[in-house]
Design a binder for these strands. Sequence first.
RNA 1: GCGGUCGUGGCGGAAUCGGUAGACGCGUAGCGUUGAGGUCGCUAUGGAAGAAAUUCUGUGGAAGUUCAAGUCUUCUCGACCGCACCA
Length: 859
Amino acid sequence: MVADLSETAPYNFVEIESKWRDFWLKNDSFHADFNSSGKKYYVLEMFMYPSGKVHIGHVRNYTIGDIIARFKRSCGFSVLHPVGWDAFGLPAENAALKSGGHPRDWTYKNIEIMKNQLLSLGFSYDWKREFATCDEKYYGFQQKIFLAFYKKGFVVRKESEVNWDPVDNCVLANEQVIGGCGWRSGALVEKRVLSQWFLKITSFVDELLAEIDNLTGWPEKVRTMQRNWIGKSCGCSIRFKTNIGDEIVVFSTRPDTIFGATFLAISPGHPLAIKLAQTNEKIRTFIDDFKKGSVAQEIFDKQEKLGADTGVVVEHPFSGEKLPVYVANFVLMNYGTGAIFATPAHDERDHEFALKYNLPIKKVVASSDENDELPYVGDGVLINSEFLNGLNVAEAKEAAIQKLCDIGVGKREVFFKLLDWGVSRQRYWGCPIPMIHCEKCGIVPVEEKDLPVSLPYDVSFSEAGNPLDRHATWKHVKCPCCGGDARRETDTLDTFFDSSWYFLRFCVNDPNSDNLLEKDDIKYWMRVDQYIGGVEHAVLHLLYSRFFSKALSECGFVDVREPFENLFTQGMVCNATYRRENGDWLFPEEVRKNSSGEYEVIKTGEKVIVGHLEKMSKSKKNVVDPDVIIKNYGADALRLFVVSDTPPDKDFPWSDEGLEGCWRFINRMWRLFIYAKSCGICAEKCGTFSGVDGADPDIQKLYKNFHRTVKNVTDSLEERSLNKVVAYIRDGVNSVYLLLEKMETNAEVFSVIIRDIIKMLAPITPHICEEAWSMFGFEKLVCANPWPSYNEAYLEDFTVDLPIQVNGKLRGTVTVDKDAGEDVVFEMAMQLPSVQSAIAGKPLKRKIFVKGKILNLVV
RNA sequence: GCGGUCGUGGCGGAAUCGGUAGACGCGUAGCGUUGAGGUCGCUAUGGAAGAAAUUCUGUGGAAGUUCAAGUCUUCUCGACCGCACCA
């Protein structure tokens, strides 16, 4: 009789999930064990900004990490899986401005709320190591790091043009400007000249670039983005003599085209342009107009090439020809030398400019294809170029550089797009920069004994600007050098500074340790074996952290120069969007499908435009609240769902039906466990299991196929294909369901199978599995037990359904021993009517036989 | 414009070395269970033709290599992402 499971009491996830959540927390079940002599594994998800609410994107990110952490524990690794808070930053200040509260209170309150949300999801963190970057202890250490960097020359103060975010009222690093706008505020970024603190990330540019090649555990996409951001170009700088005495230095990656140069162009910000503007009305007007121009990236990019003739001429280093010098709007001051020699025949921008101002165009590279039009930027043979004639581009480059060096006007040079990292922020809620400005002594670092420089609590947000600057007493200090009146630095550090080393502090075994970074602990745990986060940090956090490892290592704090061994970038969680015809967003519950299959607003019957799947966001009204899901379906169902169906690196389409399916599966598992228990499935029976020889053939097959399931699940976990992990487990469970009626009489085999299903499912849905584990009488926690193993010998079937093709088309299958030879298979194949009719009496030309795989008959 | 990733059912997606395309899930349909609905269990489900066995067709499109192509090669179309006046 087939088992009837329909009457089993529903799974009480509320009770069971809270039971195990409390148990894990109380017993400190996931404390990272430093003393283990075995292998270690450090799995880390990018820590969270305490915005006040965990969203589904976080749930997915942290679930992926938790699955890996629990899996690795089961595989016998000593696992470090810590959690913390990226707690400084502007939203806290903005919230304070809005509500009248204090950023610190707002932040710690949010941490409290979000911590409870994380706990309710059953993540296996080592909570003892938890900290927030706004903890005084943490930022005190950070100030120590800042001073160490200062001492080593990795921190410098310089005046330069910086990115100013007019909405957030602070400076942004280059990496934080996306398409001309602030990465957080979205406001158009302005250029301002300010005196700022910079981290000399460019000191490590060669290593930062070279090491990318070795980061084979990173997605290729991220590696490419970092390479592009660093932007190395090799070329030659060339000094041109002007007729007014000054020299103009240009940088070129195409010195081979030097004979094609017909004019020079300098940036409106170039010192010579500024000098000329003092006496030359035309140039002054041009520069003024340029400054007034839009800074919007889109407009900037499509902007017409404009310029003004300076009247200055330079001499060509080889031909002695006189070339005019233009001020041009397309020449950037912050790249290269802010000046170029223009070769209109072989550069698009120069070409456009030359056409507009009627400048000569001289072709010096001949392409092999007659049809190529100017400008031609490809490879070819040099012409009209004296000693370079006949060489190809690469050869000519070398020859030109050599000659320019020989005659003393050229210098081999490498330029990078990467610039130093500006870390000063004119905001309150950040780590104070431990520096003092003294009229007499200049800039003086705070002495180490005076650290930490604490953030004052009594600040007012009633006016715009930095509250630290307005504070009555805080900034007034005595100079550590001369003892005279001095002023504290009131800027705080970019929050990306905070997140550039937090993963190192997590390694410190004693969270109360006053040693900033315990070298031995770090040596044991670093590198991070698996780092998980969004791709949006490809050139921000991930580049800064790499730089920090190198700089900290130079300062003697650590021995590790690359922090992250393997990087996984998960996709976004998306959901359907609905809008009114006027563009207003609608909540899904405001919308329904009408009888004709179209969407309408429930209240008014208005037509609804169904939008694309978009990243969940409040403004688009397509967010799903994890708390609501956990309340209705439980944490296990949610965890299962966010890793089901879609590969974790791809965007995940939310669907309520899909979630229900996972909830059904949890219940299906529960019914299976209850039924199994009634059949006598238990821990002891695993001990007495002695194989399936002589058992019911169905049971033998089930058992052997289960080994394949174990292998598939394990392999898929290793390759992070969590959607496949879920699919293979479900497949295994389905096979068990088909043989339920044989469970009672084969309790030993089923005990082993059920045990291993629990183990494999536990990383994904830990609560129900922990309950089942103890229900069947197994010892300790699931993850403290070894991961299921499989027997290679069972992976291959003894018999296979071998496909028979005629001319490459499938015409039938024969069931044979997996080692069956060609003759046997051929004979059986010829018995098949479908094969006979396909051959249609024609003579056989060829037989292709791959043992255990296929037989293809060619006629 | 440059660079990258990717195109497979109604949908999310599987497919190891080139060897039975569509695992698993969602949706849909049917049968059983149930007083009914739901739940639950089973079955079916790429498309077309057929009562059925079966046949034809099928991985964005075109060509090629091969006994055999979702997989390899070339071209082409489309989608998404990143960078973008970088000299």
